[in-house]
Amino acid sequence: MTSAPAASRRIRLPDWAAWLGVAPFFVFAAMFLIAPTAWLLVGAFQDGDGAFTLANFVRLGQPSIRLSYALSLEISAASAALGALFGLALALAALRGGLPEWVRPTLMTFSGVASNFAGVPLAFAFMATLGRLGLVTVLLRTLGVDLYAHGFNVLTFWGLTITYLYFQIPLMVLVVTPAIDGLRREWKEAAETLGASAFQYWRMIALPVLWPSALGAALLLFANAFGAIATAYALTGSSFNIAPILLYAQIRGDVLHDPNLGYAVAVGMLAITGLTNLAYLALRSRTERLR
């Protein structure tokens, strides 16, 4: 083959070929991501006859819905805050704590698995651990500590929070690790030569550098917990009235007796996860600019 004619024949296909290649993706996105969400959005602003109204959102304030939102926010906040705190501590220990080399890859691999081990099986695992007949409950009872006599129950707020931490902490480890890796050795050394103690280095440099990333990660954890339903549902059935479970019941049987109010419940959830994610993105772009 001679090169000259080959070069002149090298015609780029017109752009429509590329558009054809991406078209199925956009059709998919429109049909299965955007349209269903838009449908709910529109419905949330309509009354039973299809007229525009804000009443559905006003009615989100009725006690049963308000309480379920509050419970969802509380449990998401608790599991995000604790998950972020413990996840950060664990990641710092493994990455900067002077532990043996094998600790880091072990933690990373385990976090990859545990952050994906959620839903119904996770509920089972914690039933078997902290349920009335669970190993830890039984062991503690033989040691004279009766968890359940002290009002603990895995089906309660704190039980669910402890369960959520099983995927929240590993998620935090995975999300915050790049930020910890971004702490440069020279910062610590420069601080040392300038007379700073290890504590002063952490307080004045490392933590201030880390906190936007850590806060961003905590927001991600919050959104993650807020949309979660399977673990809570499998653990508590429909008795634990968080917002996703309320919505689940509404979809199943129109327990609110008003489809449009159901849309508003869904849109309310969407607004919370959406805002959380926006705040996360804003924080992330801020930290990236500072680099």
Binding site: A35, P36, T37, G227, I229, A266, L270, G274
Partner: peptide
């Protein structure tokens, strides 16, 4: 678009499916 599934809770999305 690829980030949307992380933002929209699954329960919300499936609600939309059922209606649509």
């Amino acid at each position: 678009i690829t980030l949307l599934p992380l933002v929209i809770p699954a329960i919300v999305l499936v609600f939309g499916y059922i209606r649509l």
